[in-house]
Write a protein that binds this DNA or RNA. Sequence first.
DNA 1: AGAAATGAGCATTTGCGATTGAGCATTAAC
DNA 2: GTTAATGCTCAATCGCAAATGCTCATTTCT
Lengths: 389, 389
Amino acid sequence: MLLDKELPKIRTLPSCTCLSILSISAAFKPLIEFYIPGGSIKYYQNVLDYNDRMVTIRDVAKKMNISITTVSRAMDGYADVARDTRELVIRTAHEMGYTPNRAARQLRRQRAETIGYILPTEKPQFTDAFHSEFIAGLGDMAAESNFDLLVSAAAPESVAEQSLYERWVQGRKVDGIVLNRIRLHDWRIQYLSEQKIPFVSLERSLLPVEFIGIEADANQGFLELMAYLIHQGHRRIAYIGAAPQLKIEMDRYNSYLAGLKAAGILPDPVIITHANLTPEGGYLAAERLLRLENVPTAMVCVNDLTAIGAMHAANESGLQVGRDIVITGFDGISDSAHTQPPLTTLDQPVYKIAHQLAGMLLALINGQPLVEQQVKIEPKLIFRKSTGG
Amino acid sequence: MLLDKELPKIRTLPSCTCLSILSISAAFKPLIEFYIPGGSIKYYQNVLDYNDRMVTIRDVAKKMNISITTVSRAMDGYADVARDTRELVIRTAHEMGYTPNRAARQLRRQRAETIGYILPTEKPQFTDAFHSEFIAGLGDMAAESNFDLLVSAAAPESVAEQSLYERWVQGRKVDGIVLNRIRLHDWRIQYLSEQKIPFVSLERSLLPVEFIGIEADANQGFLELMAYLIHQGHRRIAYIGAAPQLKIEMDRYNSYLAGLKAAGILPDPVIITHANLTPEGGYLAAERLLRLENVPTAMVCVNDLTAIGAMHAANESGLQVGRDIVITGFDGISDSAHTQPPLTTLDQPVYKIAHQLAGMLLALINGQPLVEQQVKIEPKLIFRKSTGG
DNA sequence: AGAAATGAGCATTTGCGATTGAGCATTAAC
DNA sequence: GTTAATGCTCAATCGCAAATGCTCATTTCT
């Protein structure tokens, strides 16, 4: 008799961290690890000994004296179940506290009933304010369709990122993927198209691939913003952007240029700079700008987090934001209302966008027709103290 | 032939959002929903038709001409597999890109291979900075053991919270649970003990239940902090706390009192106030304090987020934090370095704490002996500009 | 030395809980 | 009296783990 087994020595795939259910997955582990810790042997014991069994579809069927099939079909909305039967099944199931076993269903259906999102991040921090809202939106929508949301993190354009996507796709860990922070020539889009995995994205790439997702039209709002700053008398307006290969960077940068052009101002490369969408990046970029001989009187940032960092730098230089210098953001994350001073920003309904995005993906997965394949959203300008007035 | 089925009419359990894997779950849906949208009927189609099949344990076994059992046991670290066989199996599996099907394994093992964490939150926002780091720590550790982390959110002491915990426990959605924001008499601890579900917690309750988890010892750091403030000449030091039934509130409040007492200062109930651990709460509380006749010269806050709100209020009153008034936090979240001015705080290694906490829980689940059942951590005082100097 | 006991190493088989194509009654319609 | 619609059940999976059991080699016992 061989009940004993050694302590788990093999770790196969990295696992996951799940969120409403949200599921996060380790990005950095090798496929299979194999190590023998001194060869010690331990008895295997299952400590999870609950008293009560789970209630299964069998129990429901038995209690009602009908077949398992009928219960399943009734719960799942098949048309070949009599109305009365269906209602009774549902009532009974509810009373008995029956809930379909997810693992069994997934096994049988060969679907993960899960959508995935990979956070573009470098740090061991799970989310920033933007992604926090984004994930919440995805998760809630997924939950509405009884789907999981699997979330993990990997640095953009890293090996880890690529292997993570591959694992999720090849291993069928997810039935569809949400993309964000699209790069101009984004391998992910190419890859997912080839693999025929459903996906949607926030922002589109320049690749000649059919686009399904949501686009925020920065242009209109940015022009307004620039016009406002220029109307206030600003002529030397700096720009703190993101990595140039990002779609949002291209859009917002172009809008910045357009805003300058509309007022007949020539862009000055010296005050056009790039950060990495984080407060740290914004801080460093702004610091540099503030050490210039001809200090800009306004800083337009590609997102709120960058702006928060920039404000930090300005404050540290003894400047009072909103009076001595003017700073703006983009996104309208909730923190932006609590900075000192509160941040003028282009507000996007991040939660709603994510919610809708997930909805589109689910429709795709279920083969339902999409009403709109491409949705445009116009960010709304919110004036706060960081631009004076 | 009956291929058609109506559009999904039944939604059973709320689903999940998963994170390194992290899994979030919808907190607010009823157990079973039943609605008929006009009785429209749609054809069912499975759109997920990949070309290639998944590679299963069978394929590996066939290729190697051994039984699937052996493959399984080899991969799983059982002792009754010859060393050579095991290594060959692992190599082959890797080459073939085999990775065990999670659903099948879970179904068979009757384990979810998932640990759970329920965010204490009211809003539809997924996380704040504190929990973001906390979740990252949990998720990464879970991933190391090939576990998922299931994350959801519910308001503390709400019906939703209770039903969520019950669903996770009764429905075996998780094999263990991580608790945080412990209340002095916490029903969750009682419930989980009774149900014999493994759990660990950050902070302990006053219940006579064996405690497994991590405790942060606020006292020492707080005394130092208070001594520092008093040394600076502050005599009127306000306190902005959290709900009094929280363990952290009790600890930190008591330490605040102890700090005053050590300096022979009598506490003034007028400047002792409670918020809800959010910036919004801190803002409102501070606003009230600043309208007092005898305005405090320092505000000690129960956590960083509260302090951030308080700073906002102070700034808005035209006070310069660090010069006109002094404000402190607790937690050392990364945002605290980017406030204006940067925040003096008691730094806890949130990520590390969560990481270790998850490790303890996993040991518990696997029936491994715990080296330490109770771990104490001392937060470290970080002086920044918000306390002048 | 011969018989019995042990155990390593692997195979067979069963079933976890659910879904689903096919098929079987029963009744209604023409 | 055939055909069709309706409502239900059968039985076959899905991929894996674990209980059981078999074989053969080695050790232990007498």
